[in-house]
Structures are given as structure tokens and as C-alpha cells.
């Protein structure tokens, strides 16, 4: 069938440091501007806390800190991407949300061991469209809950 050849995967593209990442739209519940985050004590350093997302208390993860990148002050471009994976609703802090685009399935390749600064464990694949290189995140792994709590505070701010 044509499907395999031409099927597209619609994805939200966002930026962290100088790399572009992509998350399939079906996981994404919305993109929010930065808002007040209430810190939750005794959680991993990348868990920034919780926000009031229209009445729902939603935990927030800083993706830079999740991937061990250098911390950056939040600015006007900073966005929170709300994703729902395995019944867990979480907000991801990213440098900026760039685009919604169709990524042809054919352009997706499995990930090399290390790509840029993100460990391959969290990467599902890499897509090349034109001159852009998009890293597709494996959200299940990024949000695996077992490491959200135990690491006691080692604040890297």
C-alpha cells in the first residue's frame, strides 16, 4: 500500500538549546505560556513543580534539566507543552515551540547511539526534512515515573 511510503506523522516541533525535537500531536494536549509553578519538595531536580492548568494540578518537567543540558532562564519564548502519556498528564518546559509539521514516515530513521546531547534511550528516531534534523522523543521513557521522586534535591540552578 501507499500508506507506508507516504504516511505522515503530524508532530509538534520544539527547540531545546540548538536542537529541534518532535512529539507526535496525539500526545499533545496544548501549549501554554510560562506560568507560576509551585515547587514540590523531595522530587527530582528536573521536576519543577506543579501548575494550575485550568483547575487541574499538573506536574511540570524541565526538559533541559531532564536531559542534563545547561539551565537557561525562562523568557518570553519559553513554553510548556502539555502531554498525556500512559494516563499521566505532564507539562514539558521547552525553549520555544516552533512548528507543527508533517513528517513523512519514510524519512524517519532509527536513532544512532548518541545524537547531540540527548541520550539515545530517550529517542525513538531521527527525521530529516529538507535541511532540518528532527529528534523524535520517546515520551514513555522520558516520563518513566520511577525517577521522578527518588533523586533527592540536587538543585542545579
Amino acid at each position: 500500500m501507499q500508506k507506508d511510503e507516504n504516511a505522515n506523522c503530524k508532530a509538534i516541533v520544539f527547540q531545546l538549546q540548538d536542537e529541534e525535537f518532535a512529539i507526535p500531536v496525539e500526545f499533545v494536549g496544548g501549549i501554554e505560556r510560562m506560568m507560576h509553578i509551585t515547587r514540590v519538595p523531595q522530587t527530582a531536580s528536573f521536576v519543577k513543580g506543579v501548575i494550575n492548568l485550568r483547575g487541574v494540578v499538573t506536574p511540570i518537567i524541565d526538559l533541559r534539566s531532564r536531559f542534563g543540558m545547561e539551565q537557561l532562564d525562562y523568557n518570553n519564548a519559553t513554553r510548556i507543552i502539555i502531554v498525556t502519556v500512559d494516563n499521566k498528564e505532564v507539562g514539558l518546559i521547552v525553549d520555544q515551540a516552533n512548528d507543527v509539521m508533517d513528517i513523512p514516515q519514510s524519512s524517519i530513521e532509527s536513532a544512532p547511539n548518541v545524537i547531540g546531547s540527548v541520550n539515545a534511550d530517550y529517542i525513538e528516531g531521527v527525521a530529516k526534512t529538507g535541511d532540518r534534523l528532527l529528534i523524535l522523543l520517546d515520551l514513555q521513557r522520558v516520563l518513566s515515573a520511577d525517577n521522578a521522586l527518588q533523586t533527592p534535591e540536587v538543585e542545579g540552578q
Binding site: 506543579v50 500512559d86 494516563n87
Partner: peptide, 10 residues
Amino acid sequence: LGNYLTEVFA
């Protein structure tokens, strides 16, 4: 606190 943060101490 949702399903992501379960059993936060205290």
C-alpha cells in the same frame, strides 16, 4: 498531584 507524581513525601 496526578499520576506522574505519586507518593511525594509528606
